[in-house]
Simulated scan of single mutants.
Amino acid sequence: MDETDRKLISALRHDARASLSDLAMMLGVSRTTVRGRIERLKASGEILGFSVVLKADTARDPVRGLMMIGIEGRGTDRIIRQINGLSAVRAVHTTNGRWDLIVEIGTGTLEEFDAILGQIRRFDGIASSETSLLLNTRKSGN
């Protein structure tokens, strides 16, 4: 992947429906080059697909947040299984640094969100946690 591929991917992330002509003009290359690069990136698995984000998708979870979790001992796999079993959990990420896991949570109300936090904090092996509510999403990876 070269710089032109990276710029193409960035442009597609901004507007996946941009025309080949618009993309070519932005990148300073021909439409044929853009088409070929997109096809090559799809064939290599760099681009897995394109998606649409609907307004209703963002309304699904009016209360969203990230819970950073520190785990004591060797219970990480067990804790991940427990967390994955919760319907309010949207994603679980392992990480390095101060926190062992970052958990994306989405609920309909603050009360539901608080209940999920309490449930996770009671799991055996959770040493510490810190949670941040997501106020607004300016750009989504979806």
Rank of each mutant, 00 (worst) to 15 (best):
S87H: 13
T95R: 07
I83G: 01
L66Q: 04
A11N: 13
D57V: 03
L86A: 04
M68E: 09
R13V: 07
R122D: 05
A56S: 14
V63D: 03
D22L: 08
T107M: 07
G75Y: 02
Q119P: 00
R78N: 10
G65P: 06
R74C: 01
I9F: 03
A43L: 06
N142W: 11
M1V: 05
R98P: 00
S129N: 10
M1R: 05
L8Q: 11
F113A: 01
S10N: 12
R122H: 10
T137Y: 06
R81A: 15
R121A: 15
R35Q: 09
D22H: 09
M67F: 05
I102H: 01
E130D: 08
A59S: 08
V34Q: 03
I102F: 05
G125P: 08
S128L: 02
E3T: 07
R74T: 13
I9M: 09
T137P: 00
I83E: 01
E39K: 06
I38Q: 03
G75M: 07
D15W: 03
T33Q: 14
L86E: 14
D114A: 14
A88G: 07
S128D: 15
V63I: 15
G141H: 02
R98V: 14
D15P: 09
R138Q: 12
H93Q: 11
L101K: 06
R35W: 03
R31A: 03
D114K: 09
V29F: 05
R31G: 02
K7V: 00
I83N: 01
G75K: 09
G36M: 04
S44Y: 00
A59E: 14
V92W: 07
I71G: 06
H14I: 06
V53E: 06
G141R: 01
A18K: 14
R37L: 03
V34K: 03
L101G: 08
M26Q: 15
V53L: 09
T131L: 05
E130G: 06
L27W: 09
G108K: 14
L27V: 06
T33C: 08
S87I: 08
A127F: 09
I79V: 10
R81G: 13
